[in-house]
Design a protein around this nucleic acid. Structure first.
Lengths: 154, 154
DNA sequence: CATAATAAATTGCATATACATATATCCAAT
DNA sequence: ATTGGATATATGTATATGCAATTTATTATG
């Protein structure tokens, strides 16, 4: 059943597919960070959310989703867990169903505790990927962040 | 409280973190592929597994995990779903608990049906990321992929 | 031969992810 | 004022993910 057309397809996909490479890389890198963060009882996704809120100041969920390119349902559930730990808090904004999510002292102290281990993870990730890859990745990530991903996300 | 040290940490992480950028990118790209693959009732991860098995031929789960850089429990569960759909099959290898996973005709025909839509996704992903990023990503991904293969010397 | 060490695959658990749908709230048109 | 959008958030369902512990089968060792 393996025609030469099937062979061509397989060669094309294995040789070119961006998705599989990006996912492999993401699994490898996320794993590095999660291992370093583990003693602090937090993982990459939650840390990213806390950092975003802490850096940009109190904001609603929708903009947060846009910044991180995450689905609102994913963020909603993550926030439930993060708030239960006391690292963030949210309150009605007065506008419709909207919430304002903001950082807490516990959140700030967590970041300070985590910081050295985050640094270690950064170093390991850079070693794994190589300087060139990291540079390009950073550029593309920043571009994505700046442009907002509205046309592709959702 | 937000000391200048906390400010420095936030600036450092938001400005440099590789994990958050890679994850953002992965969510965006995976989303592109999943949207195109949706009519075929399959998603990126499962497709990657089927392609790997089809391209390299029958293999055990452990090497498959190494090649794709996935945890064996993740693969185990994915295989259950894929086999239920008839796209792959597995049988005892005769060596301990080991299984040999191999492709099926249904799997091959699926890949042929999916191929044009995978192409579309590729194109969209390239447009999103830009040629330079794709090139570097591909290089880094291939390196990681090769390491996974050589470690198990298939 | 029995048992311990080993190794692969699976299962339990928790989080991450996103689509579809439901809910809640405001605002505009009637 | 009531109804009908419009929007933000939450919930239902299913897959993806990985660590820890368990099962299963082989092999080594006493």
């Amino acid at each position: 059943m393996r025609t030469s057309y099937a062979e061509k397809i397989l060669k094309d996909i294995t040789g070119d597919c961006i998705a599989v490479r990006l996912r492999m890389m993401d699994r490898a890198v996320t794993s590095i960070y999660n291992k370093e963060l583990r003693p602090h009882g937090i993982k990459t996704t939650q840390m990213n959310i806390i950092v975003a809120i802490s850096a940009f100041g109190p904001m609603e969920i929708k903009p947060l989703c846009r910044v991180l390119n995450m689905d609102s349902s994913t963020v909603s559930r993550a926030l439930t867990r993060i708030e239960k730990k006391g690292w963030l808090k949210s309150q009605p904004s007065g506008q419709g169903k909207n919430l304002i999510v903001s950082s807490t002292n516990e959140g700030f102290t967590l970041l300070q505790r985590v910081y050295p281990d985050w640094k270690k993870a950064q170093k390991k990730a850079e070693e794994l990927l190589g300087k060139e890859t990291v540079r390009v990745l950073r550029g593309a990530g920043d571009k994505m962040f700046l442009e907002g991903m509205t046309k592709y996300s959702l």
